[in-house]
Simulated scan of single mutants.
Amino acid sequence: MREALGNSEKGGRVVVNVIRKATPVPELDYTQDLWHEKELKSVANITRKDIEEFLPLAARIPIVPEIQEFKLEHANEALLSLKQGKIKGAGVLKMQD
């Protein structure tokens, strides 16, 4: 979140769609992270329309997600890695090569 806020322009808004139960949101330095009328928002629910509007924007920025791919036959390994917090970004089950 700090990096996103640091890359935001004056008056920019960072919207976070994540539920943090195990890891708290890191402490922010308001004089640096939220300076210049920057805004940090969180959302608990997101709709299909929200995603449809966001994807073209994400492609222009560009936002590149971090993923870790697993073959379908390694689904149990993927679930265990997810449970243990070993996946950085999103775990993806690949159905075909």
Rank of each mutant, 00 (worst) to 15 (best):
M1A: 14
R2S: 05
R2A: 03
E3T: 12
A4S: 08
L5E: 07
E9G: 12
K10Q: 05
K10H: 01
G11E: 05
G12S: 09
G12E: 11
R13V: 09
V14A: 10
V15K: 07
V16Y: 03
I19C: 10
T23W: 02
V25P: 00
P26Y: 02
E27D: 11
L28G: 10
L28M: 04
D29Q: 00
Y30T: 13
Y30V: 13
T31S: 14
Q32T: 11
D33G: 09
W35A: 15
H36E: 10
E37S: 15
K38Y: 01
E39F: 02
E39M: 09
L40M: 11
L40P: 02
S42H: 12
V43H: 08
V43W: 01
N45K: 11
N45V: 11
N45Q: 07
I46G: 12
T47H: 09
T47W: 02
T47C: 09
T47E: 02
R48V: 13
K49L: 06
D50P: 14
I51N: 12
E52N: 09
E53N: 14
F54V: 14
L55M: 06
L57D: 04
A58C: 07
R60W: 01
I61Y: 06
I61D: 11
I61M: 12
P62G: 04
I63L: 08
P65R: 01
I67F: 01
I67R: 00
E69R: 15
E69M: 12
E69C: 14
F70P: 04
H74G: 01
A75W: 05
N76D: 10
E77G: 04
E77Y: 00
L79E: 02
S81E: 03
S81R: 12
S81M: 10
Q84G: 02
I87V: 11
I87P: 09
A90K: 10
A90W: 00
A90F: 04
G91W: 00
V92A: 11
L93P: 15
M95H: 06
